[in-house]
Design a binder for these strands. Structure first.
Length: 807
DNA sequence: TCCAAGAGACTTTTT
DNA sequence: GTCTCTTGGA
C-alpha cells in the first residue's frame, strides 16, 4: 500500500529523490541547467501534501515569473490528479472517463491549488499587504490603505519628474528623473529611509536625492500608492515591527519553497528569514518541527544583479542556516548535476565557458544524452547579413526536418534593439515569429489609460491615474486648468478627486473647463456605482463606452486607432480569462495581476512561430534549436561590463544561460560591423566568450557569409523550396507566401487589375490584402494591409508585388 | 485648447 | 530608426 502511494516518486534520480523527500529543516538544492529542478519543486509540493499530509494552505512557493507560477500550479494539479486517481481507482488520471477526469481536477483545484500561495515575490507580498498594510506603522507617520495602487516604473518616474520640476524647480535635464529614481530604488532595496540618505550623503547631489526621496514617499502616500520596491520593503518593515502580524504569517507558512534562489536580493532574503524563523537568527533557530525552507538555484545562472540580486545569498545559505558542511549532499545541500536537456557537445561548451568564472560553487553538468551536432559558428559582414543568414539556415533546417516546427526555434540576443534587423528578415522570408519583451502589453498607452480609470475607481486618492485620464478622451480640459486645480489640491492638502467632485469648487476654479470637469465627475460617479456589481471585464466595457474612449477611436479611423481598439478588445479578453482562472476575482485583484504581469507571461505557446527574446527573458525555458546572435565584444559582453571583472562574470553567466537553453542544435553568430543606432557603422570584434568554447566543438563557416555567399545560399534556398513544394507536401498559407516571394525576382507584374480583397505578395512585407483602391486604370494606387504593420499605399506598377490566387 | 512638425534621446538586462 | 516630448501657430 505504502509503495503504491509513493510510486509517483519512482522516476526520480537519487539526488532528485533526496530533494523531494526532504521533510523538515533548511535545504539548498544546487541545480544545474536542465537538471529537472522544476520537477523537483513540483514533486516536492505533491509529496508534502500527499505523503507528509501538509495542509496546502501552509505552503508558500516563490517563482521567478507569473508564468512559471501558472505552470507550476498546472503541473501540480495533473500530478495530484494522477496520485489520487491511482490510489482511488487504481488507474492513471488520463485513462479515467472524461467527466471523472474533470471532476477530480476540479476537486483538486478547490482543495489544493486554490489554497496554495504560489507566485513571484512581488505578487505574493502584494497579496499579504492587502491583508495587513493598515497595520503598517510608517516611521514618518505616512498612511496607506488596502486599496493601494501599484505604480510601475513609468508611473514612478512621472511622479519623480514632477517633484524635480515642480517642487524643487530644477531642470530635469541636469538632474535626470531616471537616475534619481534608480538611486532611490537602490536606497529602498537596502532598507534606507530618506533621512539615512541625507545624513550619509556626500555632496550636494546626494542631499538632493534624499530630498526627492522624501517628497516621493510623501507623494506615494498621498496617492495611496506603492512602487515595486515597496511591495517588498513594506512587508519587511511590517514583519519587523509588528510581532502579532509576524507570528501569524510565521505560523501560517510552515513550508517555504523558492525557485531561482540565486536571483534573490537582500530584501527578499530578509522576508524569507522573517517568515521562516519568526525573526530569530537562523543559525540559532531550532524549531524545525513540521517546518522547512527549500531553495533551488544555480549560482552560475545569476543574471539579475542590476536589480540588486546577489548570488552570495545562495552561496551563504548553508552557513546562515547552521550547517557548516560544504561537501556534496550534506544535510542542508543537495546537488542536481545530471542534465537531461542538452546534447553533450552543448554541455561541454557551456561547462568550459563557465569555468572561466572565479566566483562559483564548483559544479559540472553531467551529460545524459549523446554527443549530438557540433555547434555552428557564423561570421557575418553586418547585422543585416547576420539576420539574412540566420533566416535562410532556419528555413533550410525546417524544410529538411519533417518533425521540426517553428515553435522549436528561438533566437536570443543581448539587447531588445537587436530584434529589429532579424524581424525584417523574418518578414521578408515569411517566417512566422513572436517577440517576447520590448513593450509590455500592459504598458501600451490605451491599456494604461483604461487601467487608470479602474485604479481611480478603486483608489480615488490616486491622482496620478486621475490626471492621466482627466482629459482622455478629450473633454476640453487644458493645461492651465489642470495646473490650477492640482496647485489648489497640493495647497489645500486634499486629493484631487475630492476637489473636483465638489461642484462649487469646480465652477470657481474651472473657468471655461468647468463643464468638462463636471462631465468627468458624473462619469466617474456612474462607474463607481457599478464597481461592486460588475465583473472586471464588464466594468472595462462600461468604461470604454461611457467615457467615449471607444467612439473616439472609431471616429479617428486611422490604422493606429484601429490597432488601439484591437488592444482594448484584447484587454477585455484578458479580464475574461482572469475571471475564468481565478476564484476570487474582482477589480482589485485584476489590477494587481496587470501591474505585476510581465511580457513573458503572455507568451502563447500554442501557435507555431519562432520566438525572439533577450537572454534574460529566456531563463528557465528550453528549445530544440537556439540561435545566439550578436556575439561581439562590446555588445555581448556589454561594453559597460568590460572593465569590471564582476560584471564580466555576470555577462558570462548570461552566456551560459543562453547556451544551456539549447537541446539539440546551437548556432552562434557575430558580425564584423554593426550599425548601433540610425547612422554609424561600428567595427566589432568577436566576443571573448567565443574563444572560451573549445574549438573542437565548433564547426565554422567563418568568413562564408559574405555578400556573394549569401546570394548563393538564397539561390539554394529557392531550389530546395521548389523541390519540396513540387513533391507532395501540403501547401499551407505560409508556404504559398514563401513560394510567391521567391518569384519576386521576376519583377512587378504589368497590366493586372487590382481590386479590394485581392491577396498579394510583396517581396519585403510578405503576404498582404488590398483594403482600398484609389483612382483607376493605369493610375491606380492600392492600400495593402500586411501582417504586423499598418497599411501601405503602393503603386502597383512599381512595387515588387505578385498577385495571389484565391485560396 | 488642440494639433502638427521638429528636436532629441535612446541601447543592457525587468519584477 | 523610432518613440516621446516640446514648441509654436490656428
Amino acid at each position: 500500500m505504502d509503495n503504491n502511494k509513493n510510486s509517483f516518486l519512482d522516476g526520480l534520480n537519487e539526488a532528485q529523490s533526496l530533494a523531494v523527500n526532504h521533510h523538515t529543516g533548511p535545504l539548498l538544492v544546487v541545480a544545474g541547467a536542465g537538471s529537472g529542478k522544476t520537477r523537483a519543486l513540483t514533486y516536492r509540493i505533491a509529496n508534502l501534501i500527499a505523503v507528509k499530509k501538509v495542509d496546502p494552505g501552509e505552503i508558500l512557493a516563490v517563482t521567478f515569473t507569473n508564468k512559471a507560477a501558472l505552470e507550476m500550479k498546472e503541473r501540480l494539479e495533473i500530478l495530484m490528479a494522477d496520485i489520487l486517481s491511482i490510489s482511488q481507482f487504481g488507474q492513471p488520471w488520463k485513462t479515467l472517463p472524461f467527466v471523472e477526469q474533470r471532476q477530480l481536477r476540479k476537486r483538486i483545484y478547490e482543495n489544493i491549488t486554490k489554497e496554495l500561495w504560489i507566485g513571484t515575490f512581488h505578487a505574493l507580498f502584494a497579496r499579504l499587504l492587502r491583508f495587513d498594510i493598515e497595520k503598517f506603522k510608517d516611521p514618518e507617520g505616512l498612511r496607506w490603505t488596502k486599496q493601494f495602487s501599484i505604480y510601475d516604473e513609468s508611473d514612478a518616474q512621472t511622479l519623480i519628474k514632477e517633484i524635480i520640476t515642480q517642487d524643487l524647480q530644477m531642470d530635469p535635464k541636469r538632474f535626470e528623473p531616471k537616475k534619481v529614481r534608480w538611486a532611490i530604488s537602490n536606497a529602498k532595496n537596502q532598507g534606507l529611509l530618506p533621512k539615512d540618505l541625507e545624513e550619509n550623503a556626500e555632496g550636494q547631489r546626494g542631499k538632493l536625492i534624499g530630498q526627492v526621496y522624501q517628497l516621493y514617499r510623501k507623494s506615494l502616500a498621498a496617492n495611496n500608492a506603492l512602487d515595486f520596491d515597496d511591495l517588498l520593503l513594506f512587508p519587511v518593515q511590517l514583519l519587523q515591527q509588528n510581532q502579532d502580524v509576524r507570528s501569524y504569517w510565521h505560523k501560517r507558512f510552515r513550508h517555504i519553497l523558492v525557485d531561482e534562489y540565486q536571483d534573490t536580493n537582500w530584501t527578499q532574503y530578509e522576508l524569507l528569514k522573517l517568515l521562516i524563523t519568526n525573526g530569530i537568527n537562523p543559525v540559532s533557530f531550532n524549531d524545525w518541527d513540521n517546518r522547512s525552507i527549500f531553495v533551488v538555484g544555480d549560482a552560475d545562472q545569476s543574471i539579475y544583479s542590476f536589480r540588486a540580486a546577489d548570488f552570495r545569498i545562495l552561496m551563504g545559505f548553508q552557513k546562515d542556516f547552521g550547517d557548516k558542511g560544504r561537501e556534496d549532499n550534506t544535510s542542508t545541500m543537495v546537488k542536481l548535476e545530471e542534465n537531461y536537456r542538452s546534447t553533450s557537445n552543448i554541455l561541454e561548451a557551456a561547462n568550459s565557458l563557465i569555468s572561466n568564472n572565479t566566483e562559483r560553487i564548483e559544479k559540472v553538468l553531467l551529460a545524459t544524452r549523446s554527443e549530438g551536432e557540433l555547434i555552428t559558428l557564423t561570421r557575418c559582414d553586418d547585422e543585416i547579413h547576420e539576420a539574412e543568414a540566420l533566416v535562410l539556415r532556419m528555413r533550410k533546417l525546417e524544410a529538411e526536418n519533417e518533425s521540426l516546427n517553428w515553435r522549436d526555434i528561438a533566437v536570443l540576443y543581448r539587447t531588445n534593439a537587436q530584434s529589429r534587423a532579424i524581424e525584417e528578415s523574418l518578414v521578408r522570408w515569411g517566417v512566422p515569429y513572436v517577440v517576447v519583451g520590448g513593450l509590455r502589453f500592459y504598458d501600451r498607452r490605451e491599456i494604461k489609460d483604461v487601467l487608470a480609470y479602474l485604479r481611480l475607481l478603486i483608489n480615488p486618492s490616486d491622482s496620478v491615474s486621475l490626471l492621466r485620464i482627466l482629459n482622455v478622451p478629450k473633454r476640453g480640459i487644458g493645461k492651465t486648468t489642470i495646473q490650477r486645480i492640482s496647485d489648489a489640491s497640493t495647497q489645500l492638502g486634499i486629493p484631487l478627486w475630492d476637489l473636483i467632485s465638489d461642484e462649487e469648487a469646480v465652477r470657481s476654479l474651472g473657468g471655461r473647463s468647468a463643464k468638462g470637469l463636471i462631465q468627468f465627475c458624473e462619469l466617474i460617479n456612474l462607474l463607481m456605482r457599478n464597481l461592486n456589481t460588475s465583473k472586471p471585464s464588464e466594468l472595462i466595457q462600461l468604461i470604454l463606452e461611457k467615457s467615449g474612449y471607444l467612439s473616439h477611436l472609431i471616429a479617428n479611423a486611422t490604422d493606429e486607432s484601429e490597432e488601439r481598439r484591437r488592444n482594448l478588445q484584447e484587454l477585455v479578453n484578458a479580464a475574461l480569462q482572469f475571471e475564468e482562472e481565478s476564484e476570487d476575482f474582482n477589480v482589485e485583484t485584476f489590477l494587481a495581476s496587470a501591474a505585476l504581469a510581465s511580457d513573458a507571461d503572455s507568451k502563447d505557446t500554442a501557435s507555431d512561430r519562432i520566438t525572439l527574446m533577450t537572454l534574460h527573458s529566456s531563463k528557465g525555458l528550453e528549445f530544440p534549436v537556439v540561435w545566439l546572435v550578436g556575439m561581439e565584444q562590446g555588445l555581448f559582453p556589454s561594453y559597460r561590463s568590460l572593465d569590471t571583472p564582476a560584471s564580466l562574470e555576470e555577462e558570462r553567466r548570461l552566456c551560459y544561460v543562453g547556451l544551456t537553453r539549447a537541446k539539440e542544435r546551437l548556432y552562434l553568430s557575430h558580425a564584423n560591423e554593426r550599425r548601433m543606432w540610425g547612422g554609424m557603422r561600428e567595427p566589432a570584434l568577436p566576443s571573448l566568450f567565443l574563444s572560451e568554447i573549445p574549438e573542437n566543438l565548433l564547426q565554422g563557416d567563418i568568413g562564408l557569409i559574405s555578400g556573394a555567399a549569401l546570394r548563393r545560399e538564397k539561390r539554394l534556398d529557392r531550389l530546395t523550396r521548389l523541390d519540396r513544394n513540387s513533391t507532395n507536401r501540403s501547401l499551407n498559407s505560409f508556404n504559398i507566401a514563401s513560394n510567391a516571394v521567391r518569384k519576386k525576382h521576376s519583377g512587378p507584374t504589368p497590366g493586372k487589375s487590382w481590386k479590394v480583397g485581392d491577396k498579394l505578395i510583396h517581396s519585403n512585407f510578405g503576404l498582404g490584402e488590398i483594403t482600398h483602391t484609389f483612382g483607376s486604370g493605369e493610375k491606380i494606387s492600392i492600400a495593402v494591409k500586411f501582417a504586423g504593420m499598418g497599411p501601405k499605399i503602393l503603386d502597383p506598377r512599381l512595387a515588387p508585388i505578385e498577385p495571389l490566387g484565391k485560396d
